[in-house]
């Protein structure tokens, strides 16, 4: 039943341990070069803060959360390390996908759920992720990977909770995937 995504001439995925070493070396390079790790949700928060500020500046300026992100950046709140890093992530993912023949317009889901149902769950999942990442001050990249390598206590507690939460709910959304 489990066919790899991108059937046809798509190349097989890299060995997970090799990919992990590659990812770890990129993370190490980030530590050595910049003195900080990787991130993904931070740049999205900057984007949200900029949008809220564009629509309702007074509302944004009165909120400590938005102000924190509006104060960042080299002259502009979007000119941050994390934003440029995320642009690179998009390019890097695309390049790897192209090289492997895996770039294809598609919707990933199991056979027992409708497209509409899958997209609704994707949106809901993204929403939970957004709230969770902000409560935890980072996501799988900024907290789990980065803090994990730094032996950050909070990051390790957070990481255990991600797996706990996902396994807790997995049974109830199994039809989406299998």
């Amino acid at each position: 039943m489990s066919s790899a995504s991108g059937v046809g001439r798509a190349a097989p995925y890299m060995n997970p341990y090799l990919a992990g070493i590659g990812l770890g070396l990129v993370l190490l390079a980030s530590f050595v070069v910049m003195g900080q790790g990787l991130g993904a949700s931070g740049s999205m928060t900057s984007a949200v803060a900029v949008m809220v500020n564009a629509v309702a500046p007074e509302h944004a300026q009165a909120n400590e959360f938005y102000v924190d992100y509006l104060d960042r950046g080299v002259g502009h709140p979007l000119k941050t390390f994390l934003t440029f890093e995320v642009l690179g992530v998009i390019v890097g993912g695309f390049v790897s996908g192209m090289l492997a023949g895996r770039v294809r317009r598609t919707i990933e889901k199991g056979p027992r759920i409708s497209t509409r149902g899958r997209l609704l769950l994707a949106f809901a999942g993204g929403g939970l992720m957004g709230i969770g990442a902000k409560l935890a001050r980072g996501c799988t990249s900024g907290q789990a990977l980065t803090g994990g390598a730094m032996l950050n206590f909070g990051s390790w507690a957070f990481m255990m909770m991600i797996f706990a939460g996902a396994y807790m709910l997995a049974y109830f959304v199994r039809r989406q995937w299998r």
Binding site: L38, A40, S41, M44, V86, V89, I90, G93, E108, L121, A122, F123, A124, G125, G126, G127, L128, M129, G130, I131, G132, A133, K134, L135, A136, R137, C139, T140, S141, Q143, G154, A157, F158, M159, M160, M161, I162, F163, A164, G165, A166, Y167, M168, L169, A170, V173, Q176, W177
Partner: peptide, 23 residues
Amino acid sequence: QIAGGILLGFGFVVGGYCPGTSL
């Protein structure tokens, strides 16, 4: 961080991605 981790785990299995992988 504990509460956020659990919510993030929910979001991971419900949505199928985390922020970096969704990009």
